[in-house]
C-alpha cells in the first residue's frame, strides 16, 4: 500500500491505496466520484478524462500514487445543478449528448482544450477531441457545443 495525499475538486484527501491502483478506480471506488466513467480502460476512449494539475489526462492510465501532491478535478468539481459550468450549459443547449456515457470525459477534455486554445474553429475542436469517442456518434452537436462554450469561458 502507498499513502497518497491529493486534492480532489478542491478538497484534500489522504488515502492508503494499492501501489497499482489507477486514478480512475480510486476516484470511483474510494471517493465515490462515479462521474468519471470507465469505457475502454485501455486509454483510448477518453471517458475517464479528468484534469490533473489543470491538464486533461486519462485517469485509467495514471496511477493514483502518481497524483500525490496534485490537484485533480473531475466532472463533479466543475459545476452543480443551478450553476453549471459554461461547457455543461452548452452541451445541454446544443443536445451534445445522446446516451451520455462519454459526456463527462468529453466535457473535461473540451474544457482543457478551450483553456489551452486562443480561439477554436470546428476543425480545431475535432482535432482537440481526438482522444474522446462518442459511440452514439453525436459529434456534430458536441462540436457546436464546444464552439459555443468558448464564447462564455
Amino acid at each position: 500500500m502507498v499513502d497518497v495525499t491529493f486534492s480532489v475538486n478542491g478538497k484534500e484527501h489522504s488515502l492508503s491505496v494499492n501501489d497499482n491502483a489507477l486514478l480512475s478506480e480510486t476516484l470511483r471506488e474510494s471517493l465515490n466520484l462515479t462521474g468519471t466513467h470507465i469505457g475502454c480502460d485501455t486509454s483510448q476512449c477518453g471517458s475517464c478524462t479528468v484534469h490533473l494539475d489543470g491538464k486533461a489526462v486519462k485517469a485509467c492510465t495514471v496511477l493514483t500514487a502518481q497524483a500525490a501532491g496534485s490537484e485533480v478535478t473531475t466532472i463533479e468539481g466543475i459545476g452543480e445543478p443551478g450553476s453549471l459550468h459554461p461547457m455543461q450549459e452548452a452541451f445541454n443547449e446544443h443536445h451534445a449528448l445522446q446516451c451520455g456515457f462519454c459526456t463527462p470525459g468529453m466535457i473535461m477534455a473540451a474544457i482543457g482544450l478551450v483553456n489551452e486554445s486562443e480561439s477554436l474553429d470546428g476543425d480545431g475542436v475535432r482535432k482537440g477531441l481526438d482522444g474522446n469517442f462518442c459511440r452514439c456518434t453525436g459529434y456534430h452537436n458536441i462540436v457546436k457545443a464546444v464552439l459555443s462554450a468558448q464564447q462564455n469561458m
Binding site: 486509454s43 478524462t49 486533461a56 489526462v57 486519462k58 477534455a109 482543457g112 477531441l129
Partner: peptide, 9 residues
C-alpha cells in the same frame, strides 16, 4: 503524437 490527453503525459 497520440491524442491531447496522451500528449499531456
Amino acid at each position: 503524437i497520440g491524442d491531447p490527453q496522451v500528449r499531456n503525459r
